[in-house]
């Protein structure tokens, strides 16, 4: 069943397509999508940035291409087409990262290829790019991608600062700091994301009460 967007396209200005993804509809904190890479590659700020940039690239490119072909693709094969397109851009980004820096490539490992199954991308393809014009789809991809980067940085920042006492590799607290190594390890990932979600819940509840 091809559901058309419930809102009239004329009602929304382009800005919303971009801004929604940043905060109000943040893919990680609000929609709780793409949790695997959010937890797996955020043990340092630089890894988080690289992963975020790769996802942003795939998101924008696949949104644009899917939006371009949206009228040609019959609904029966649309998911298969989307997956093919997404896998293509993931392969591209895989090679680009390898060409740019082998160190980053090794740090991210198979998680670059796993962008294919990041539900944010297929989700945006199905929910937005398949029923909106190219320009707006690109903006939506950009907004969601930057929202994803913000979320990754929120996690990567906390984990690197607490777990290693550094930010982007620069020591923050001097030599006397005893790093809280747990935050670099897997449990730290769960705890940090859990804490962020708790904070978001508390903030939302307070807003609801005052409203």
């Amino acid at each position: 069943m091809h559901v058309h967007a419930t809102i009239d396209p004329q009602d929304t200005v382009n800005q919303d397509a971009f801004l929604d993804g940043l905060w109000k509809q943040n893919p990680v904190f609000v929609q709780v999508l793409g949790t695997c890479p959010t937890l797996a590659v955020t043990n340092s700020v630089s890894n988080a940035l690289a992963m975020g940039a790769a996802t942003l690239f795939v998101l924008v490119c696949s949104n644009v291409l899917i939006s371009l072909v949206r009228k040609l693709v019959p609904k029966q094969v649309r998911i298969a087409t989307y997956i093919l397109i997404i896998a293509t851009f993931v392969t591209v980004v895989d090679y680009v990262i390898k060409a740019a820096s082998i160190t980053v490539y090794k740090a991210l490992g198979p998680f670059i290829a796993l962008i294919v199954v990041n539900c944010i991308i297929l989700g945006r393809a199905e929910a937005y790019a398949s029923r909106n014009p190219v320009g707006r789809s690109a903006l939506d991809g950009l907004g969601m991608g930057i929202g994803f980067i913000i979320a990754l940085l929120c996690l990567g920042g906390v984990r690197e600062i607490l777990g290693a006492g550094t930010f982007l590799g620069y020591p923050l607290f001097g030599p006397g700091y005893q790093p809280w190594v747990l935050f670099l390890l897997p449990p730290g990932g769960f705890f940090t994301l859990g804490a962020w979600l708790l904070a978001f819940n508390a903030w939302k509840r307070r807003k609801e009460k005052t409203a």
Partner: peptide, 12 residues
Amino acid sequence: AQGTALVLMLAG
């Protein structure tokens, strides 16, 4: 604390 936040803490 209900919902995903709690599940993540438990997973930790």
